[in-house]
């Protein structure tokens, strides 16, 4: 589903922040992406959701080579990947409803379809009462759920989440993790970046562990390395 072959990446002329990254994630799998702050988790996710280009190595998404893919191919691929950004990245001037509707509208869905699907999803994530609120009036947990709703409205094949439990209390974090598990159960390939070892211990899933720009696979059974 997501395959990296000896991928390296740098920002501008800087040193490589990721080196020799190779892995192959099966469809429907669930992985944590762990590592200390600055280890390169967000950068690795950016490579998957095609917002950055690798400086070397090959990337295949859904068996399609992405290195020299056309702009059109990238656009089509982005529509099949849901992303929950670290700082939500909701559009401030749009209501919760409109934010969540955005991917459907971009795709050119009908108004009817937009109304039905967005309502349904907002109920599912518990934001039915905040449909017409602007993001600035929502709590951190509500924003996070709105951003998750936006990420999954298109029923993506792949869902990436960058520290989704970082800014919410543990009760909310628990609910969000349940949400992700549920999405994974219906077949979504999940990669969740976190530097919070709690989750890794609680939900046994293999880890892509980053350290100083290099990656190591840790099988589900093992405990995550403690943060120094």
């Amino acid at each position: 589903m997501i395959r990296f072959d000896k991928v390296g990446m740098r920002y501008g002329q800087g040193d490589e922040v990721l080196s020799d990254i190779s892995f192959d994630l099966a469809p429907g799998s669930f992985h944590f992406l762990t590592g200390n702050s600055g280890a390169g988790k967000s950068s690795l996710l950016r490579l998957i959701y095609l917002s950055q280009q690798p400086s070397r190595g090959l990337i295949h998404i859904m068996d399609e080579p992405m290195n020299a893919a056309s702009r059109d191919t990238r656009v089509q691929m982005r529509r099949r990947i849901g992303v929950v950004f670290q700082n939500y990245r909701l559009l401030d001037h749009l209501t919760t409803f409109e934010n969540v509707a955005l991917p459907l509208r971009i795709k050119g869905a009908t108004e009817e379809q937009v109304k039905r699907e967005v309502r349904e999803l907002l109920e599912w994530v518990g934001l039915a009462n905040h449909m017409h609120s602007l993001p600035s009036t929502l709590s951190g947990g509500q924003k996070q759920r709105a951003s998750i709703a936006r990420a999954v409205i298109n029923t993506p094949r792949i869902l990436l989440a960058d520290e989704p439990t970082g800014n919410v209390d543990s009760e909310m974090a628990e609910r969000l993790m349940q949400l992700f598990m549920e999405l994974n159960r219906i077949g979504t390939t999940m990669v969740i970046a976190t530097h919070d070892p709690r989750w890794v211990g609680q939900y046994p899933a293999p880890q892509l562990h980053l350290e100083a720009g290099r990656m190591r696979m840790i099988p589900a059974a093992e405990k995550a390395p403690a943060i120094p």
Partner: peptide
């Protein structure tokens, strides 16, 4: 910029 970047990442084409 931020709006454009988000819309771009949600799969909007350059033409859109």
């Amino acid at each position: 910029q931020e709006i454009v970047a988000v819309v771009h990442m949600l799969g909007a084409t350059d033409n859109t």
